[in-house]
Nucleic acid binder design. Structure first.
Lengths: 344, 344
DNA sequence: ACATTCTGATGAAACGTTTCATCAATTACG
DNA sequence: CGTAATTGATGAAACGTTTCATCAGAATGT
């Protein structure tokens, strides 16, 4: 049915090897082909409508030109967290520039490890693991198959490559910003406990509070989560009580959580930023659409995506990166959800 | 290096064919293998750490178990439009249930056709085209390679499979809703002209206006777009003039556009919904986070994704679908961005 | 003029599966 | 009991590339 190299070679009156060397990208063979032959092959190919078969190539070279991207939780993470879309866009764009294709894997809650193995077994050249709540099983599986991986937003062991942002400093900056505005009763809506990010941002919060001389007893750490709903719930819990003792500011674990909080406050008739200031974390495109536009810590999502791709491709192509653990800087994006404390 | 079927067979003292039939999923051969042999093969495989090679299988079967998803515009569409994330999540989830993998392709503006060909040439079993501003070139390319495709949110010709939602009725419902609230001066922020969706929603708007007896001269059609920025611009243009003649309601081409409009109105000090009502279109998770939460037309994005997958997989597996053109119903989601016209 | 290198070219062996055709031995059937 | 069907099993031919080893002849160097 399909036209193969053999057909082209026969039609051009040359050998298959010559046709292969002429038509196919990146041939490493020592096969040389002269001008006359080249032209005959080229025209034979276009005449017959030759379609190159990457599968066959992969079989012999052992490379697929595909990298796998493991995103957890299609339901919640991909669907609802704009951070994910931004990262994905950055990754797919970077990959295409480097002429790699992207295979996307997701797991619905629970089966992350299982799904990862599916990904690994489908013969990708490398794997990008994003915020993976995977156990070390997955990594040893990768190692066994000798598939290189880079993890994004998660520390693995010393040997693994990873790309993170400076969550600790981000948490510190967010909290410090609120302190500088005169706030003292500052709540932190803490993210999901299974992600390393959560601990780092929390540590930043604690350090900033500590450095400002606010005693630990006045820290307000509210268990929350990275989605809108937990942010809403936490805000409802925190602000529906006595307004005298309620915090005057919130550092939410991310923008989505902040969005939920924003809505809760609006429903409670509490004005942001006049009565309560809010800082988020992520700075995805939608954060500017919130009312009021959200002051937040900007994660360099684009850069993280392209750096992760860069690292992974380097490893795949046997250029070992000099730095294996990367931590990109964050910055404060000032918008309208924070202002000076009403008590000062 | 890697352990192959041959190794396993030798170690188990059986034939390769037996090992293949035992270890590999969906074998269609008539090769039978008895219990004793099966056990020996199984234990040999786990002992040696056999890793199945899908590439080799693909080469002989001609199937890859991969479908390609073509999303235009990684920069704007994927990054910023939550609709895209929701659809993607739905598609990837549905595909995994059907044991297909997802290869993701995007094009940065302009090279959509080129990127599509890359997708087609990488031997996927089928292609999902989402909102593709592609020319018919792409489809004939698919046909030439006899790769089935389903297009989402775009009408192709009669023969092609497509999944759309009822944009016309959505546009009608949105406008009718505003009319029912007593509005007469209703603007429509029109989407990008290159998408068929745009025309359908616009027609719905016109029909509803017409049915309400509002003369064409009073229609207010503002060229806008599907992103936040054009929504913002259009609102600024529309509402910065004389408030007497300004519309009292807006039907935005989608939620992102509505979000931009919302922000513009907030900056202009115009209250929503007290002074101006706004209806969006899409109803992605983030639409409820807006202030005020957005009244919008709900697209059944999840269902569209899973239906598209269902159709494509059916075609791939030679079960021709009975209905080829699908148009899913939309509905009105009432939130807080609309209220009765201030003039009534 | 002879040895060496270079150029153009080719055949064939991989790559790791699936699956067809074949076969012996066993079981079922009338 | 003879024939037919079933079971368990195997060897080998694909699938469409890449690439190694080889070779003839031309160009180059001494």
């Amino acid at each position: 049915m399909a036209i193969t190299l053999k057909d082209v070679a026969k039609h051009a009156g040359t050998s298959i090897a010559a046709a292969s060397a002429t038509l196919n990208p990146g041939n490493k063979s020592n096969t040389r082909v002269g001008d006359i032959a080249r032209h005959r092959i080229l025209s034979a190919a276009s005449e017959l409508g030759y379609a190159y078969n990457p599968i066959a190539k992969s079989l012999v070279t052992g490379k697929t030109g595909v990298i796998g991207l493991m995103l957890p939780y299609a339901d919640a993470f991909v669907d609802q967290n704009p951070f994910c879309a931004t990262l994905l866009a950055s990754i797919v764009t970077s990959l295409m520039q480097k002429h790699y294709n992207l295979m996307l894997y997701t797991a619905t809650s629970g089966s992350v490890t299982e799904s990862s193995k599916v990904a690994i077994d489908s013969r990708v050249d490398g794997i990008l693991l994003v915020v993976p709540p995977v156990n070390s099983d997955v990594f040893s599986h990768c190692d066994k198959r000798s598939i290189p991986y880079v993890s994004v937003i998660r520390d693995i062991d010393e040997n693994a490559c990873s790309v993170n942002c400076d969550d600790y400093t981000g948490g510190y900056m967010a909290t410090k910003h609120l302190i500088d505005l005169g706030h003292r009763r500052i709540a932190h809506f803490v993210g999901n406990p299974d992600v390393s990010t959560t601990a780092a941002r929390l540590e930043g919060y604690r350090a900033a509070m500590h450095d400002a001389g606010i005693p630990e007893s006045d820290h307000i750490e509210v268990p929350s989560g990275f989605l809108r709903e937990p942010g809403y719930q936490s805000a409802m819990m925190t602000f529906s009580g006595n307004p005298q003792s309620a915090p005057t500011a919130v550092f939410a674990c991310n923008d989505l959580c902040a969005a939920g909080a924003l809505q809760a406050l609006s429903e409670l008739g509490i004005s942001v930023p006049d009565e309560v200031s809010i800082v988020g974390f992520d700075d995805t495109p939608f954060s500017a659409s919130l009312q009021p536009p959200l002051t937040t810590i900007r994660m360099p999502i684009q850069e993280m995506g392209s750096l992760a791709v860069e690292l992974l491709v380097n490893i795949i192509e046997d250029r070992q990166p000099t730095t294996r653990q990367h931590c990109l800087p964050v910055s404060l994006t000032l918008r309208s959800s924070t202002s000076t404390s009403p008590k000062t």
